[in-house]
């Protein structure tokens, strides 16, 4: 975002003029004093006005939305981005055609993009909040699929008394499985192996 530079008889006056031009409140802006006002000789000779530069603080939601829009434009897909704040997170939902490439195999492109928007945001967006990125509801659909898988495999483990090792999953996906089976009787879950091949194991409980 570009700086707006304003002069005034005092820092406060210059700041107010800049805020008025940007149409934002003081708390939504960051500013730097370029030059303090100085009284000249006899109050008029050689005095100088205060100069400040002001710009809006980039908010997480608009930062994330701009970031995603730019990346998808480069990838040649047109998307709509909706953002909402909930429980201290900024949810950024992306919709559009041919967005499969934004998700990637088992959501790895989506995870990478989410990670990058958070790293970039934490460095360049003051007051950055954690962004949860989703494309066409992939994360919620995946969560439901994982929960169904967990329930199915838990039944099998109870019936056969044999442990089952699931396919490798990201930390987030493993957590979905662990949480889903937390209350289940007769089985226990844990993870083994090294990232990125770490797997959840569902085992019978003695």
């Amino acid at each position: 975002m570009e700086w707006v530079v304003k002069t005034g008889s005092s820092v406060e006056a210059a700041l107010q003029a800049a805020l008025a031009e940007l149409g934002i409140q003081r708390g939504e802006a960051e500013f730097e004093v370029v030059q303090e006002a100085q009284k000249g000789l006899f109050g008029f000779l050689g005095g100088q006005e205060a100069i400040v530069k002001v710009r809006p603080i980039p908010q997480t939601a608009s930062f994330a939305s701009d970031f995603v829009q730019e990346v998808t434009r480069q990838l040649g897909v047109t998307v709509d981005v909706e953002t909402r704040r909930e429980n201290g997170y900024v949810f950024c939902d992306v919709f559009g055609k041919n967005v499969g490439l934004l998700i990637g195999r088992r959501g790895q492109t989506l995870d990478a993009l989410q990670y990058l928007v958070n790293v970039a945001g934490s460095r360049h967006c003051p007051g950055h909040e954690r962004v949860i990125l989703d494309v066409e509801g992939y994360r919620s659909r995946r969560k439901e699929a994982l929960e169904r898988l967990a329930a199915r495999v838990a039944d099998r483990v109870r019936n056969t008394g044999r442990r089952v090792r699931l396919e490798p999953m990201s930390p987030h996906e493993r957590k979905v499985i662990h949480v889903a089976l937390q209350q289940e009787k007769g089985i226990t879950t844990f993870s083994e192996g090294e990232e990125p091949y770490r797997k959840v194991v569902i085992a019978p409980q003695d």
Partner: peptide
């Protein structure tokens, strides 16, 4: 360090996104 990240985590994510573009 800012672009590579701890254990190359940031550059790995960058590569993943760029590879998605390359598949096309």
């Amino acid at each position: 360090g800012k672009i590579i990240g701890k254990h190359g985590r940031i550059v790995r994510a960058l590569r993943t996104v760029v590879k998605a573009a390359a598949v096309k």
